[in-house]
Nucleic acid binder design. Sequence first.
DNA 1: TCTGGGGTCCTAGGACCC
DNA 2: TCTGGGGTCCTAGGACCC
Length: 433
Amino acid sequence: MYALVDGNNFFVSCERVFRPDLRGLPVVVLSNNDGCAIARSNEAKALGIKMGAPWFKIRHMVDTHRLVALSSNFALYGDLSDRMMSLAAGLGPHQEIYSIDESFIDLTGVRGNLVARAHAIRARILQWVGIPCGIGMGATKTLAKLANHVAKTTERTPGSYPAHLAQVCNLAALAPVDLATVLGATAVRDVWGVGRRIGAQLEKIGITTALQLARLDPAMVRARWSVVLESTVRELQGTPCYGLDSAPARSQQVAYTRSFGQPVSNLVELQEAVTEFASRAAEKLRTQNSLASQVLVYIRTSPFRQEPQYSRSATVPLHRPSADTTVLVGAALAGLQSIYRPGFQLAKAGVMLLDLQADPQHQGELALQAGALPADRTRLMSALDGLNQRYGRGTVLLASAGLAGPQRTWTMKQELRSPGYTTCWADLPVAKA
DNA sequence: TCTGGGGTCCTAGGACCC
DNA sequence: TCTGGGGTCCTAGGACCC
């Protein structure tokens, strides 16, 4: 038995905590570079704004429909997420933080009225953090996810499901006939694990609802699609295939990729960007006490533009696994040199650190093992991270990153960013008497 | 003018081995 | 003319997730 606690329109809800004037208005939060909408308020959804809608195509609604757009402010969202997660954890003995706005709770052994308990947690999160949540419960993660969808959809558009399932929905408490009704009213594409591609294939053979999917033969599904979709079918039938992952494994790769604010074609600017990206990836790598064995760097033009396309990547193996910024930047720049061709309007670049392993120095093992950084390098990296953490990102960096300034064209656009209300002293909101 | 970023898992096919 | 069977490992690409 699982619950899924999920913040409604999470990024928009975070912005509204400090901007109550935005309640009731159509609001979108934009991706990096203010490229497209990645979160939408209910009012924005009602205007027909789709997930991923390009900003330049919906911008006119600022004048015609009082649409408000904000650049993404991940420092704010991350902080409010932490607060929400710690309250959601009160629902049961184990929690898996699945994404910035969702966590699964294992309800095994929890006694009493689950729906009443969930409503209490939901009210607490709303009052203490200011974020409205939906809570779904079911025998499997897939059913909990579906229940969450029901809880939120019913709240947003009354009448889509029985009214008592709004905000908190426990599918496990429904009689079989009522469960079938709910599954029958849910589109197959709204099932967790069914995306655009498989959704289209299912619809083609007449499977349009979650109920129809749940009634397929798992063996047939495995033969025709894959073991992944088979698990989805079994989970819909109430057989758990996925357990709670409360201590996720160390990640297998670390990436830092960005679109440029403006197209870049010259090598020097690319070297600056790649230095910056590799440095940031290295920082991330050190926070999880990992070493990388390979560095991948890629550059590409914009697939949306009608102009000569270019997309290349290079993977550079390291002599020994490392988390040293200078080593990782050096490898990334060598890779860049090998794939760079002049004459293209490049839109994006990225650095990925691959083939990760645990840093033996942080495992309490002998530092002499292959893979360990020399002690002075480790101290240098710690000092670097400490200074940048204390005095702000970019306080100390490699010279090849170049200096910020108006001549720097590749940095991303964020013209509509809200203040760091909870993460920056200068931006703390002021309470007036 | 202007279209995000960061992940995971599975599968098919090739290289290679005995 | 006729050319096995079983296995591992790696990689690229596809599909999904938020």
